[in-house]
């Protein structure tokens, strides 16, 4: 993975979810979203910026809940957007609803320090 530059959010599915969140020490921010969710569109630009700003220090991943029902159910998600920050495959923080970018950065930075 070290040769990959992660400057954009990656789209993941139920099938490759487990592999995606096990990025070792690198935190993985997963955005559970759907096309029909207005607030999901509202936070999308901030997520793209985070992917660019953090580069290889962070993976930003997007899971479409419409097409991938299994993982949202497994994590008890009943509201979108929900953002879960994973580290070493484990959820370390969950943020529900539209978040200011600063709140996302604070959550990420807490994992990086």
């Amino acid at each position: 993975m070290s040769t990959t530059t992660l400057e954009k959010p990656v789209h993941i599915t139920d099938a490759d979810f487990d592999e995606a969140i096990n990025a070792g020490d690198r935190p993985v921010l997963v955005d559970f979203w759907a096309d029909w969710c207005g607030p999901c569109h509202a936070i999308a630009p901030a997520l793209e910026e985070l992917a660019t700003e953090y580069g290889e220090k962070l993976t930003v991943a997007k899971l479409n809940v419409d097409e991938n029902p299994a993982k949202p159910a497994a994590f008890g998600i009943r509201s979108i957007p929900t953002l879960i920050l994973f580290r070493n495959g484990q959820p370390v923080q969950t943020l529900v609803g539209v978040q200011p970018k600063s709140a996302l950065k604070a959550a990420i930075d807490a994992q990086l320090s």
Binding site: A34, W36, C37, G38, P39, C40, V65, D66, P72, G76, I77, R78, S79, I80, T82, T94, V96, G97
Partner: peptide, 17 residues
């Protein structure tokens, strides 16, 4: 239970019900 059953947006979250 916000986000785990409590919602203020049916169009966002109705899908889960």
């Amino acid at each position: 239970f916000r986000g785990r059953g409590v919602s203020a947006c049916a169009t966002c979250d109705g899908f889960f019900y």
